[in-house]
Design a protein around this nucleic acid. Sequence first.
DNA 1: TAAATAATTAGACAATTATCTAAATGTCTA
DNA 2: TAGACATTTAGATAATTGTCTAATTATTTA
Lengths: 92, 92
Amino acid sequence: MNKAFKALADPNRRKMLQLLNDKDLTAGEIADYFEISKPSISHHLNILTNAELVLREKKGQNVIYSINTTAFQQIIKWTFDFMERGDGSEEE
Amino acid sequence: MNKAFKALADPNRRKMLQLLNDKDLTAGEIADYFEISKPSISHHLNILTNAELVLREKKGQNVIYSINTTAFQQIIKWTFDFMERGDGSEEE
DNA sequence: TAAATAATTAGACAATTATCTAAATGTCTA
DNA sequence: TAGACATTTAGATAATTGTCTAATTATTTA
């Protein structure tokens, strides 16, 4: 959980997640959307993978990345707990 | 939004949010739950306030902190967009 | 099998961050 | 008003992070 939150702290990584949410992409395709170098892209993808926010699959020469929806469900759950006060009160 | 995600990246700050979710607390009361120095607590509270995740209110000698639920709703919204694929497809 | 392509690893560096101690500010009360 | 208390500000330092270039690994294909 901590890794996921740390991973989400970077805007480039959040953008990667949004791209992957639209469709699966190879590392190279992801890199095309950014100004930064490919090693930097690789570094960010590694952090996202370690945080289990994305899944990687090697296919020939390419590495295909995809969103891991399970991780997002956990984050939603965590965040949701702040919306539901323990006693059900809606008062200030 | 970026500030909020950065603020959430730190475990101490997430713990502060969880404490404040239970009830409003002064800076000193918050400090009692942590091992780190008061200036460090103050630093973290400042980051949370800047990210608009918490609200601060001076009351006499004390500063009372409380959760800003609006900010959490935005984070939920952001996260939720990953759960709903644009075309409504559930396929892999 | 040599060259081209895709991606990662290694290592360096600058910027950011979390922490500390010491000092300052603001408020209360004896 | 002097002292105590609550909190923040200032400034230093060590650790972490994001970025780069150069080199490496793995795969495809001419």
